[in-house]
Amino acid sequence: MEVRTIKVFTTVDNINLHTQVVDMSMTYGQQFGPTYLDGADVTKIKPHNSHEGKTFYVLPNDDTLRVEAFEYYHTTDPSFLGRYMSALNHTKKWKYPQVNGLTSIKWADNNCYLATALLTLQQIELKFNPPALQDAYYRARAGEAANFCALILAYCNKTVGELGDVRETMSYLFQHANLDSCKRVLNVVCKTCGQQQTTLKGVEAVMYMGTLSYEQFKKGVQIPCTCGKQATKYLVQQESPFVMMSAPPAQYELKHGTFTCASEYTGNYQCGHYKHITSKETLYCIDGALLTKSSEYKGPITDVFYKENSYTTTIK
């Protein structure tokens, strides 16, 4: 009895394709271990004539594949690729409408935090270190965002349907971005203890939790000093293409032309909904596939993004 075979390709990165001759009487799992086709788990399936010449994702289970996976995804987590594939199996079914010149995501599976993050990423200057993220990001900007969303979920250790947080998501993504040249110098002034300067680099240099107003941050924000008295913390120097200011959701007025974009969060910790506000020729609110415009805006804002380049204080 002759062994019926077909020729397929296996890959971990969709760049390096490895030619395989597979036995049609055995499952993919018996031949390769966990195997995925377009995100779908085909591990328990036997090869079919229609699979001839198709590319299958496999887990990096030998040295060659491990090197290829690390170079593309910059992670050695053995569960990463499987999590990416199972997320992709959902995100490829989502709709990605162009809204006001940006790629958004039609609401499904509690994905409003991903839509808000995706919209924000198209408006701030950011370059990702893992080629996987950078490639998928370019495709997302062009309207094909399924891979990018699935990668975000995998890097953030999230599953489809789980509630997510924009600030946490951005923080994970910033860790995989090139923020080497970003720098922030802060000064804390206390009447009792004097003053202390701190220099922050990388992710810490672009994120701040405690106030939404970048102007206020430049002037000074009140913080408790270690001595128990009130101290003032203010920005001395900022070198970065953008800054992200966050605070627990509270009524906040966004003035046209003073910011790049913002995240609105309605609801409580267990259950809520994100919308995205962007400042173009007027203010726009993007909620999944829905767009509304207004000249002014007041609502429960939790993150505001500002364009920056270089700032030095005039406070002496």
Rank of each mutant, 00 (worst) to 15 (best):
H273A: 06
T116C: 15
Y265G: 04
Y138L: 14
A132S: 07
T55V: 10
H256S: 09
L254R: 07
C271S: 11
E162A: 08
S181C: 12
M24I: 13
T10L: 13
Y155C: 00
R4W: 11
T314G: 14
N100S: 14
R167D: 01
A115W: 00
T116V: 15
Q134W: 03
L102S: 08
I286V: 04
L59E: 15
C261L: 00
M170L: 13
Y73Q: 01
I15K: 15
T292K: 12
T266M: 03
V206K: 01
D23N: 14
L65H: 08
S310L: 15
D23A: 10
R139A: 14
T192W: 02
S310K: 01
M26I: 14
Q216M: 08
Y297G: 00
T43V: 08
S295K: 14
N111P: 01
T76M: 14
A146G: 00
T292P: 00
L17R: 06
H48A: 13
A140Q: 04
K92T: 11
P34R: 09
F217L: 15
V188R: 08
C227Y: 04
D109S: 04
Y113P: 01
H273E: 08
E52N: 12
L200A: 08
K106H: 13
K280A: 11
S181P: 09
T198H: 12
L118N: 06
H48Q: 09
T5Q: 10
Q30P: 05
R167Y: 09
N14L: 10
Q31M: 13
A177W: 02
I152V: 10
K219P: 02
T116Q: 00
E71D: 14
T159C: 13
I223R: 03
T226K: 15
T258R: 07
N89F: 13
L88Q: 00
H18D: 13
K275C: 07
F174D: 05
D165I: 02
T192C: 09
S240I: 01
L119C: 09
A250L: 09
A87F: 05
N268K: 04
C112L: 03
T116I: 05
K93M: 14
C182F: 05
D38V: 11
K298G: 04
T192E: 13
S294Y: 15
Q197S: 13
P248N: 05
E308F: 08
V236T: 06
Y252M: 03
L118Y: 01
S246N: 01
K158C: 03
A289N: 03
K293S: 14
E168A: 06
P300T: 14
H51V: 05
S86F: 10
V243W: 00
L121E: 02
R83E: 05
D165E: 10
A136H: 09
L290K: 15
G82L: 14
E296K: 12
M170E: 05
Q195V: 15
G194D: 00
T169W: 04
A247R: 02
D165K: 06
Y36C: 05
T198Y: 14
L290F: 13
Y297K: 01
W94I: 08
V12F: 08
S213G: 01
I6A: 13
T103A: 08
G143E: 04
D41Y: 08
T55P: 07
D41K: 08
E125Y: 05
V206S: 03
L133P: 05
A132D: 05
L65K: 08
Y234P: 01
Q237L: 12
P34N: 11
L163N: 02
I15A: 06
I152P: 02
A117R: 02
L200Q: 14
R139M: 14
S181K: 12
G220E: 03
D41Q: 08
A247N: 03
V160H: 07
P47Q: 04
K183S: 06
G53F: 11
P248C: 06
V203A: 13
K44G: 12
K191W: 09
C271F: 11
M170T: 05
V21H: 14
E215W: 02
Y284L: 12
V236I: 10
Y84F: 13
K46T: 15
L126Q: 05
Q237A: 13
Y214I: 12
S79E: 15
T103Y: 10
T64N: 13
G101I: 07
A136S: 09
L59A: 15
M244Q: 02
G194L: 02
G272I: 00
S171P: 00
A115L: 01
F217H: 06
F56V: 10
V221P: 07
S25G: 14
T120A: 15
L151N: 04
A250V: 14
L291D: 00
L200W: 01
A40W: 11
A154S: 08
G33Q: 06
E239N: 07
A289H: 15
N111A: 00
Q175V: 02
Y137N: 04
Y73K: 03
Q238L: 02
T120G: 05
Q222T: 10
H256Y: 08
F32R: 08
S171A: 15
Y172N: 13
Q197F: 08
L235N: 02
R66H: 09
L179K: 04
A140D: 02
A150T: 03
Q123G: 04
T75K: 11
T19S: 12
S171T: 15
K54L: 14
T312F: 12
Q20E: 12
K201W: 14
V58N: 08
C112D: 05
S240R: 02
F56N: 03
E281S: 01
K255R: 10
E296I: 15
V166N: 07
D109V: 11
F259A: 02
I315H: 15
K233W: 07
M244S: 01
H18P: 09
G29A: 10
A231S: 05
K280H: 02
A150K: 08
E71K: 12
W107N: 02
S86P: 06
R139S: 13
T232Y: 09
A115I: 01
R141K: 15
L283M: 08
Y96R: 06
L65D: 08
S279N: 01
T302L: 05
K127E: 14
L200M: 13
Y234C: 01
A262Q: 00
K191M: 13
T76I: 10
S310R: 13
E296P: 09
G143N: 05
G29Q: 10
E144W: 07
L283I: 15
C190N: 02
E168Y: 05
V67Q: 14
G257D: 07
G299C: 00
A115G: 06
A205F: 02
S25A: 12
S181G: 13
L151E: 06
N157M: 04
N187V: 10
G272M: 00
Y172S: 14
Q238R: 02
Q30M: 12
K106C: 11
C149H: 02
D180H: 11
S310T: 14
T120C: 13
N49S: 13
L151H: 04
H176A: 03
Q197W: 03
N268L: 02
L163V: 05
S213A: 06
L126G: 07
P60V: 08
T75D: 11
H74Q: 13
C261F: 04
D165A: 05
R167H: 05
T91Y: 02
T5V: 10
Y252V: 09
Y311D: 14
V189E: 14
D63Y: 08
L283N: 02
P131T: 05
L65C: 08
V189H: 09
A108V: 09
H18Q: 11
S279W: 01
T199E: 15
V8T: 10
G288M: 11
Q238N: 05
G39Y: 10
T76A: 14
F259N: 00
A40T: 13
K54C: 15
S263L: 00
Y214M: 08
L212N: 00
H90E: 07
N187K: 12
P131K: 12
T91F: 06
V185F: 03
I286Q: 09
S310A: 11
T282F: 03
M85H: 07
A154R: 00
S263G: 01
L290T: 12
T120I: 12
V236Y: 09
G202T: 01
F32S: 07
D287R: 00
K7C: 14
Q216E: 14
D62G: 12
K229F: 06
T55G: 05
E215M: 05
V3H: 13
K275D: 04
A250R: 13
T103D: 04
F80V: 06
N110F: 06
K275L: 06
V188P: 01
T313R: 14
T226S: 13
Q222K: 13
Q123E: 06
Y284E: 10
T292F: 08
Y274A: 09
T258A: 10
L151A: 01
W107Y: 05
L133A: 00
S279F: 01
A69M: 15
C227A: 01
Q30A: 15
Y269H: 12
P131M: 04
F305R: 00
V236W: 10
C271E: 10
G101K: 07
Q196E: 10
L59F: 11
D165T: 12
L200H: 07
S310D: 12
I277G: 00
A117Y: 01
K191P: 15
V236N: 02
K106A: 15
G29C: 09
V42W: 14
I152M: 11
